[in-house]
Design a protein around this nucleic acid. Structure first.
Ligand SMILES: NC(=O)c1ccc[n+]([C@@H]2O[C@H](COP(=O)([O-])OP(=O)(O)OC[C@H]3O[C@@H](n4cnc5c(N)ncnc54)[C@H](O)[C@@H]3O)[C@@H](O)[C@H]2O)c1
Ligand SMILES: NC(=O)c1ccc[n+]([C@@H]2O[C@H](COP(=O)([O-])OP(=O)(O)OC[C@H]3O[C@@H](n4cnc5c(N)ncnc54)[C@H](O)[C@@H]3O)[C@@H](O)[C@H]2O)c1
Lengths: 207, 207
DNA sequence: AAAATATTGTTAATTTAATCACAGTTTCAG
DNA sequence: CTGAAACTGTGATTAAATTAACAATATTTT
C-alpha cells in the first residue's frame, strides 16, 4: 500500500525542483531533465512517477503544475500535520527558524526545552514550552511529529517521553540511535556519519 | 575496491556506539547487541564487519577497542582531512560549533561567507574568510572537504567555485541538488525531504 | 570428556531496487 | 501521407542488498 522509501524521498525532491520550474515559468518537463537535476536516470524518474499513477501528455513531457499536485496528493496530509522541535539549542533554533513560514503542509507549532531561560521564549513566532508539559501540549495541539535536537545523553529519555505522549513520527538529529515503538515512524539523520562517509570516499578516490 | 555506501554509513554508526561502550567499560560486544542498537540484524552487522576483514575471538563477541581501531583504519585518513563550512548563517554556525573539538580526524579549519559583517569573525576558534579568497585558502590549508550551508539560490554558483578551488568532497545541506565534476564526491542531505518522508509514513500508517 | 549451547563467518537464497529494451504515441519534416 | 525522431510507460532482466541457513568453533554443563 505504501511506496518504497527511496521513491518517497525522490518524489519530495522532484517536487522541490518542480516548484522551482514553475517559478521560472517552465510549464513542462521531460523525464531526462528531472533526472539530470537529481543525479539519476530518466527511467528512474518515469518509474517513480509510474508508482504514483500519473501519466503525462505523451511527447510533451510532464505538466509541471499537475505533477506537483499529484505528488502533493501522495505526500501531503489533507489538513497538514503539526510538528514540534524538542531541544532548542543551536541546531533546534536553526531548524525552527528555517521551517517556519515555508509554504507547506507541515507546521511547526511548538518547541520544547528543559532549560528555564529558554522556556516561554518565542522563536520565529513559535513558543517554547517546558518539556514537562509535552504530553499535554502534544494532545491539545494535535502534534504528530517531533524533531529531536536535544543533547545525545538526553535523547533516549526524550524519545520514550515522545512515544508516551503519542507522537507518531520522529526525525532524530541526535547522534545516538533512538528506540521507539513500532507504531512510530523513525527517521534518523546522523551528520557525523555523512561527513565521515564523504571523507571515506575522498580518501579512497585518492588511492 | 571501495565499500558499499550503506556499509560505510553503518560502520561509522557502529563506531560511535562502540566508543560509547568503551566509556561504559564494556570490552566486548556481540553482533546481536550492536544490531539491536542500530535497528538492524546480527547478520547485517557480521556482514559489515566481514567487509572490513576483521574477525573476532569466537564466542566472546567483538573486542570493542580492536573493532574501533579497525573501523578507524578503514574510514579515517591517516593524517586527517581538513574541512571548511561555506555559508555562516544559522545552520552553518550550528554545524561549525558542533564539529569543532570533536575528537576526530576531520578538522574544521575555515569558514567562508560573503557578508562583510561575518568576515573575520571567529566561531569556536575558526575564522571566517571572504568567499573571494576560497581558492587561495583551500590551497594553503589543504582543505579537501566542504560543507555547504549557503542560501539555495547561491548554491549552484558556490558549488562550481568549490570544484574550481580543488575541493574533493562536498556535503550539501542546501535544498537544491548540486552539480559537481565526477572526481568530487557529493553527499546531499535534504532536511525537508526527511521531514516530508516522516509525514508521509505517519499519514499512511493512519489509514 | 561428551553433550548442549552460543556465537561467528560465509555460502546460498531471497528480496528489493535499478536498468535495459522496446512497443506505443505524438510530433514534425518533407 | 509517410517516415524519422523524440518521449513515455512498462515487462523483462540484471544488479545490489538483505536475510536465511548452517558448518565451524569455542564455552559451559553435566
Ligand atoms: N549543532 C549541530 O549542527 C549538530 C549536528 C549534528 C548533530 N547534532 C545533534 O543535535 C543535538 C543538539 O545539538 P546542538 O548543537 O543544538 O546542542 P545544544 O547544546 O546547543 O542544544 C541542546 C538543547 O537541548 C536542551 N535540552 C537538554 N536536555 C533536554 C531535554 N531532556 N529535553 C528537552 N531539551 C533538552 C538544552 O537546554 C539545549 O537548549 C545533539 O544531540 C547533537 O548531537 C547537532
Ligand atoms: N537552517 C536550517 O535548519 C536548514 C535546514 C535545512 C536546509 N537548510 C539549508 O541550509 C542553507 C542555509 O540555511 P540557513 O538557515 O543557515 O540560512 P541563513 O540565511 O541563516 O545563512 C546563509 C548564510 O550564507 C551566506 N551566504 C550567502 N551567499 C553566500 C555565498 N555565495 N557564499 C558564501 N556564503 C553566502 C549568508 O551571508 C548567510 O550567512 C539554506 O540553503 C537552506 O536551504 C537550512
Amino acid at each position: 500500500m505504501s511506496l518504497p522509501e527511496r521513491t518517497v524521498e525522490r518524489l519530495s525532491e522532484y517536487r522541490r525542483s518542480l516548484l522551482q520550474c514553475l517559478e521560472e515559468g517552465k510549464t513542462h518537463i521531460f523525464s531526462h531533465e528531472l533526472a539530470e537535476l537529481h543525479h539519476n536516470t530518466a527511467v528512474q524518474v518515469r518509474r517513480d512517477i509510474m508508482f504514483i499513477g500519473y501519466t503525462s501528455m505523451q511527447r510533451k513531457g510532464y505538466d509541471v503544475r499537475e505533477l506537483i499536485d499529484v505528488i502533493g496528493d501522495i505526500l501531503d496530509s489533507e489538513k497538514g500535520l503539526n510538528v514540534a522541535v524538542v531541544g532548542i539549542g543551536n541546531l533546534g533554533r536553526a531548524v525552527t527558524t528555517y521551517f517556519v513560514g515555508k509554504r507547506s503542509k507541515l507546521n511547526i507549532i511548538a518547541t520544547f526545552d528543559v532549560e528555564t531561560t529558554k522556556i516561554d521564549r518565542v522563536i520565529s513566532g513559535v513558543k517554547c514550552y517546558p518539556l514537562s508539559r509535552l504530553k499535554e501540549v502534544v494532545a491539545s495541539h494535535q502534534i504528530s511529529i517531533a524533531i529531536v535536537t536535544v543533547p545525545a545523553d538526553s535523547a533516549a529519555e526524550v524519545s520514550s517521553q515522545l512515544v508516551e505522549a503519542g507522537i507518531k513520527g520522529v526525525l532524530n538529529f541526535t547522534t545516538v540511535p533512538l528506540d521507539v515503538t513500532k507504531d512510530v515512524y523513525l527517521d534518523e539523520y546522523d551528520m557525523i556519519t555523512s561527513l565521515e562517509k564523504v571523507a571515506y570516499f575522498v580518501k579512497t578516490s585518492r588511492s
